[in-house]
């Protein structure tokens, strides 16, 4: 899976904000705040990754166990897929 390109990630007052660009604005009608792990996964998703690989990378980056990383990754992917942020 891979993310759509029409968003830019901005540091707004210390928060990671996803700002839609172009037609995506009309479809989404809002801004999205990401936590540190969300930001990490979003940045990885510029390339095509499987859920399993993403969970492994998250576990390595944040030094957490694989099961917990899997759960977090699944929740994040469900969230962004639900609002149409994946290709």
């Amino acid at each position: 899976m891979k993310r759509k390109n029409n968003f830019i990630l901005q540091d707004v007052g210390g928060e990671n904000l996803l700002v839609p660009i172009g037609q995506q604005v009309v479809d989404l009608n809002g801004l999205i705040i990401l936590n540190a792990s969300g930001r990490f996964l979003w940045e990885k998703l510029v390339e095509d990754f499987s859920m399993e690989d993403l969970a492994r990378l998250l576990a390595e980056e944040f030094n957490i166990d694989r099961e917990c990383a899997k759960k977090d990754t699944q929740a994040f992917i469900n969230e962004i897929a639900g609002i149409g942020l994946l290709e």
């Binding site: 707004v12 007052g13 928060e15 904000l17 700002v19 660009i21 172009g22 809002g30």
Partner: peptide, 21 residues
């Protein structure tokens, strides 16, 4: 971190251009 997203959503943003954003 709380104020900035609230203000951004209440400003007029140039959504057609990432550089301007």
């Amino acid at each position: 971190p709380i104020a900035s997203p609230l203000l951004l959503a209440r400003s007029f943003l140039p959504y057609w251009d990432g550089t301007l954003i």
